[in-house]
Design a protein around this nucleic acid. Sequence first.
RNA 1: GUGGACGUAGCUUAGCGGUUUAAAGCGUCGCUCUGUGGCAGCGAAGAUCGCCGGUUCAAAUCCGGUCGUCCACCCCA
Length: 435
Amino acid sequence: MSKKVKFQTPTGMHDILPEDQFLYEKIWRVVDDVAAFYGFGKIETPLVEDAALFEKGTGGTTDIVEKQMYTLKTRGGDMLALRPEFTPGIVRSYIQHGMIALPQPVKLYAYGPLFRYEHPQAGRFRQFRQVDFEVFGEQSAALDAQIIQIFYVILKELKFSHLIIEVNSIGDNQCRPYYKKLLSGYLRPRQNSLCADCRRRIRENPLRTLDCKEEKCQRVRSQAPQLIDHLCEECKNHFKSLLEFLDETDLPYHLDPYLVRGLDYYTKTVFEIFSEQTMKTTGEGGEVVQRNALVGGGRYDGLVHLLGGKDVPASGAAAGVERIVSFLKEMEFAAAPAPVARIFLAQLGDLSKKKSLRLLEEFRKAKIQIAESLGRDSLRTQLARADKLEVEYTAILGQKEVLDGTIVLRKMDTGEQETLKLEKVVEEIKERLRK
RNA sequence: GUGGACGUAGCUUAGCGGUUUAAAGCGUCGCUCUGUGGCAGCGAAGAUCGCCGGUUCAAAUCCGGUCGUCCACCCCA
């Protein structure tokens, strides 16, 4: 006999069990509603794309592509990758289907699973879901503001309270290369005061030193040349205009001059939305403030062109669904919904069991949720089950009732029972549940 | 990729300075109660103590490795 193997979910991946589904469904419902209101069309792209799409789009030097992508070789020899983010796939679809011929801007949204080979921890998994919104063909900061607003509204609809929006501009191909040079010129002579990671970053990605959490790096950074002081005229105006739009919409934002993002394709606007919330910790009954980025996004004016399309400006953002769910679970109103069935059908004996199948069908047609336990024969256990399900009524169909063409209706809280005509029961119950 | 904590029935945990049948609560199923639930009593099923190896007469318990979970760094949603 072979050894018993215990299968389990792969590292960083989880089952979503029936009792948690309502949380996800709630999010989908809110997202669909908000998207419909703002005129976004839903799009689904494959979970798997040409690996080169992400290498080129997301960027070959990003961690996501460099060390977190699940790649696979097909039998035909193609190199494919499990999508690690939404944007390149949606850009690809925009180009492939000639959406440039549609009235611009083209507004799209999507949600679904993404894959990143990472070391799992709080709010970080190898298979996770995002909600993603993208706008193509409009360079105005009004759309950036609308994207921010959309995610803010979604989180508000989900009853998030302490939301913080951080915005910044990281310039474009005009001004950023110049600023990078300026920054590394400032950092290089001071590298002894920086952490090891930042010393490495000076070469690889000097912008990232800006959001280092090490205190000594923050000290150095406070004297560093500011990105917003070195934006080109166009970027400066764009950013100014973004802030004006945000003021207009009353969104509670902060300008964080040190906010930079890890993906290569961002230009001008970048932003993140955080929720600050105290979480109960499992050990020692303590509390801890969780400040995870729930949403991240920005403008990516060069990406459509980079991936082979026309020079189309675009802007977008994505929210981490698991992170939202983990907050939702902490909130008290996120308890599981009330029991679905308000009535239970108990049967006794073969004859009534056969009759029950037909009766259940009548309830279905009348759109009345009714629970049963056809596998059990004793009335005791069926009533016990009905009790557990917290139904209001149990309809009891025994041998005698089938022969008489009647059915017994028991009110569960009081225990009072009455005998009804079998053909009237659906109507009668419908009437009573209305109250 | 680096570092820390932890892996015992479906769940929550006890046992963990080595020694016979690994314990409890919840849950599940059954009986007391042959057509009447919530309570109670009784009972059953369910764990080769994550896996592999080592030390030992003897390992859930000690040691090493491995896998997994959680957490932090890194990065990101």
